[in-house]
Design a protein around this nucleic acid. Structure first.
Length: 132
RNA sequence: CCAGUCGGCCGGGCAGCCGCGCUUCAUCAAUGCCGAAAGGCGAUGGGGUGAGGAAAGUCCGGGCUCCACGGAAAAACGGUGCCGGAUAACGUCCGGCGGGGGCGACCCCAGGGAAAGUGCCACAGAAAACAGACCGCCCCGCCACCUGUCCGCUUCCCCGGGAGCGGAGAGGCGGCGGGGCAAGGGUGAAAAGGUGGGGUAAGAGCCCACCGCGAACCUGGCAACAGGGACGGCAUGGUAAACCCCACCGGGAGCAAGACCGAAUAGGGAUGACACGCGGCCGCGCAAGCGGCCCAGCCUUUUUUCCGGGGCCGUCAUCCGGGUGGGUUGCGCGAGGCCGUGCGCGAGCACGGUCCCAGAUGAAUGGCUGCCACGUUCCGCGCAAGCGGAGCCAUACAGAACCCGGCUUACAGGCCGACUGGCAAC
RNA sequence: CGGGGUGUAGCGCAGCCCGGUAGCGCACUUGACUGGGGGUCAAGGGGUCGUCGGUUCAAAUCCGGCCACCCCGA
């Protein structure tokens, strides 16, 4: 309510909800993290807020574990990682099972790193070859 | 104290910081914003409330909703299956009965019908189900052989005896034929009541005793069934989670059910205006008509023409109905929880009091931290009980999705009660 | 969330209705033909029938309970 800066910071990380939105982000840039896969799409609308979505497939665990993964990621975005997101961009975090085991500090650090970093100079073939 | 059986219950607690869903109150924002509409929406602060015993698997039963149906019944199909009760109902639960297991507490059982019918019973075996007869046992007849007895004849040594031949009848073994039998053998999961005695040519429920089986009837019980049992005289192998028979139950789908609001685009119908189409073939149809193809026409592609490709065979306006996305609803006062009293062996039922207890929809309960409790491992002290320190991401299985009653499955650890068998003490 | 289906050899499938012997194709092994490969021929090995119980003399098959995978309804 105070200045522009506070208003921007105040939260405003929206949420992706519908299936077409997820499919659109899937076509964007993919950044592989240690415990997750981050998908980023520039919507070309810098005025709007950033939006985040979470994907946890049924393969990663039962309902309790899937809920916990999503909640931990959501909390990490709310507390830290959300501030690093660019306005007008969509972010989808595809969780892996390791999200359950890693400590919360490590999780936020990894998320921050992948959100801020521009695409790494990485051989794309290698990142795809390793599958868990 | 040890070992065990059964039943019930809990399934971390407190606190701090930052957050989430629903609801409510106050203030501000509202002649506001989003949306076609329906409808929805903000900020700050305060209050209330917020996962389970299995929320799971979706295996049964109901409520609720829509569809179908004249009522009802039958057939078909599916399910259930000792008896009685509980219940809204059940394949669940309770009590009993029968069978099996355990020293016992107690546990397990799809537990109707095989003298209604059909099917199947591999291999082995003679034979696998109105019995039959391989080996075998017995009797009779015929044939052959052997053994010994008796008689007659011949011959030899002194009437006695030996040898040979013939005959008679007996016994044995073998073969063939006829008849009787089912005790024994072996096979098999299973072989046609069991044991003993009599009996017989040999045998056999052929007869008898005991046991088993069936069973009129009697007694007890609501019943399943239990006890007794005249009599029968061994007939009736197993399999129904094989077909089947009998009794009872069941219409189908499921909240993504269903209801309401309802654009754009496409398509349907009606009316009106304008324009106008001439024809051929095929299919469906009684017909009206509908659909498809071809020719012609128009537009487009090409610099132009022809060929070829694509498009149009009506257009526009208004209205109507259906309806996708979307929104709202269904959506939590209920076969409800707790307490008490009474009835009942019990499952439960009745009455009284009291409480309101999740409603999300890319889906709310989370993240971080401290202390405590309990568990476990290691170390130190101690005779021991125990104490101190450190570690274990230690604390399971697991997340409401319309609701309820059950079943099944998963589950770290712990608590309570009843009972059984041992040991010790009194 | 709801509704269906399938698990048999390394792979793809029969066998299950009506219970007694688990079979087919490809692949694999060995041998022969060839200088070698390929190919052909001959012989051969390999299966807890997903798992746990039950019925039966006997279960891949019949009946329950679990497990895994696949498909359908936005």
């Amino acid at each position: 309510m105070a200045g522009d800066d506070a208003k921007r910071n105040e939260k405003t990380v929206g949420r992706l909800k519908s299936r077409p939105q997820f499919l659109a982000v899937q076509k964007g840039e993919k950044r592989k993290g240690r415990t997750f896969l981050l998908e980023v799409l520039d919507r070309q609308e810098p005025e709007t807020a950033a939006r985040a979505g979470f994907t946890v497939t049924k393969k990663q665990g039962n309902a309790v574990e899937r809920n916990r993964m999503r909640r931990r990621l959501r909390e990490a975005v709310r507390l830290k990682a959300g501030f690093a997101m660019q306005p007008g961009h969509d972010y989808v975090i595809v969780a892996r099972r390791d999200v359950l085991d890693v400590s919360f500090e490590q999780l936020t650090a990894q998320l921050l790193e992948r959100i801020q970093s521009k695409p790494q100079p990485k051989r794309p073939g290698e990142s795809r070859s390793r599958k868990v």
